[in-house]
Amino acid sequence: MEGSFDFAIILKSVPYLAEGMVLTFQLTFLGIAGGIFFGTLLALCRLSPFAPLSFVAGSYVNFFRSMPLILVIFWFYFLVPFIVGHPVGGFWSVTLAFIMFEAAYYCEIMRAGIQSVTLGQVYAGQALGLTYRQNMQYIVLPQAFRNMIPILLTQAIVLFQDTSLVYVVGLGDFLVHADIVANRDNRLMEMFTTVAIVYFIICLLGTFYIRRLQRKLANA
């Protein structure tokens, strides 16, 4: 391979790369939103006094936490069309894979969050005559959520990095688009270096933001 780096080639493909980045962000946001939603439900199940429910939720979490994400992506990519009975695009299969996978991790975060809310709050809610649902909805979950924001966001950065794994099924995210351009123009080194820098900058900005948020929350 010829030595000199040629970064001009990358500038020409910026729109195509941006298209990939849009998909990366879509996957990340859907993964976070769906993951937090199901994760919270799972956390409530895990903390439920009804043993079978908490057992099922616990098994779900342990199951997904023992699997490599790549294998989960492969599973969903090939299995989802079978289950729903008609083809779904790779995007939705993979999105579902991320949601189900992340839910296991968000469940553990939300569980810690819920447990961090002092019992007094729960009793106070009960004393006011709130139902379980109302108590959770208005008292416990908002606080749990707030306490856990930094950790939820840290997990979001992890997820953002993990979306690059859709590479294995060729879904057009940032990395795959970069890979295509790299192969087309025979500029693999420049491309991968650029990709690394872009991911690094985005994640670093995210980390700084979280740290600021943490300080703010700590002072509040």
């Binding site: 990519y77 090939f78 069309p81 079978f82 008609h86 083809p87 779904v88 695009g89 790779g90 099924v169 060729g170 879904l171 057009g172």
Partner: peptide, 20 residues
């Protein structure tokens, strides 16, 4: 027409499961 990129590893499975 919806373009679905495939690789040598995914093409058969995607055809068999009705994605493409």
């Amino acid at each position: 027409v919806k373009h679905v990129p495939v690789t040598s590893q995914t093409r058969i499975a995607l055809m068999a499961n009705g994605t493409i």
